Amino acid sequence: MPKDRTNKISCSNYRCEIEITLELISGKWKGLILWNLGNYEVIRFNEFRRIIPAITQKMLTQQLRNLEENGLIKRKIYNQIPPIVEYSLSEEGKRLIPILDEMDKWGKIHVDNYKKKLHNS
């Protein structure tokens, strides 16, 4: 199936723009990748492996490629041996950081409230 047919933006296959945002940042790793780029600005591939040790090399590569294809991150390759690859947020990716900040705040409050609820039960 052509890639455009599965892309909600290109085929207008969405009911609300929130779906697009969630699709672009959803998954176990994309939010963490974006969040860390927002905190560190530039991260090399192997640094990601240290920052997010549970992610496999294959998954990290897939997630970085997807984020790059969707215009949320930039990749810079230094032509040397061994090659160095650095990742940073694109302007579109930078615009997501306030949203991720709010999600982080909400998540912390939700976890605290959940723990209180369990403790009071």
Rank of each mutant, 00 (worst) to 15 (best):
K28Q: 14
E23A: 11
H110F: 12
I9P: 00
L34R: 13
F48V: 13
I25K: 01
P82D: 04
I52D: 03
Y14V: 04
E69S: 10
N36Y: 03
I51V: 09
T6I: 15
R75L: 09
N36H: 07
N79K: 06
Y40A: 07
N113M: 11
E102P: 00
K116R: 15
A54W: 08
E41K: 14
N7G: 02
I33L: 08
L96F: 08
N70R: 07
V85I: 11
L22W: 04
K105T: 05
H110Q: 06
I55Q: 04
K58N: 03
I84L: 12
S90N: 08
Y14L: 03
K115Q: 05
Q63Y: 09
L72M: 05
L64W: 13
K117R: 01
N113K: 10
L72P: 03
T61F: 14
S26W: 06
I18Y: 02
S121C: 07
D104F: 01
G107P: 02
I84P: 03
D4E: 10
K115I: 06
N79D: 09
E91W: 11
I52P: 02
Y87N: 11
L118Q: 12
K105R: 12
L72V: 06
T56A: 03
S121P: 02
Q57H: 11
N79F: 01
N79I: 07
Q62V: 04
G27P: 09
G27C: 08
C16M: 07
K74Y: 15
R95V: 01
E102L: 13
L64S: 13
Q57W: 07
L89K: 13
L37V: 15
M1L: 08
E17H: 06
D112A: 09
Q62M: 10
N70T: 03
I9M: 04
L34S: 10
I52L: 09
F48N: 10
S90T: 11
L24S: 03
I81K: 11
I84E: 14
G27E: 04
N13H: 15
L34W: 12
N39F: 05
R15H: 14
G31I: 12
G38E: 11
I51A: 04
S26A: 04
M103H: 02
S10P: 01
K3F: 09
R95S: 08
K117N: 00
E23I: 02
R65P: 00
I43N: 08
R44N: 04
S12Y: 02
R95D: 07
I33S: 02
L96C: 02
T56I: 14
N70C: 05
I55W: 01
I25D: 01
T6V: 13
Y14S: 02
L22P: 01
N113L: 13
K117S: 00
I77G: 00
L89M: 15
P98R: 07
W29H: 08
F45E: 01
R44V: 04
Y40M: 01
H119R: 14
L24Q: 06
K105F: 08
L118D: 05
G38A: 12
I77K: 12
L24H: 04
K94A: 09
I109R: 15
E23S: 14
N36K: 08
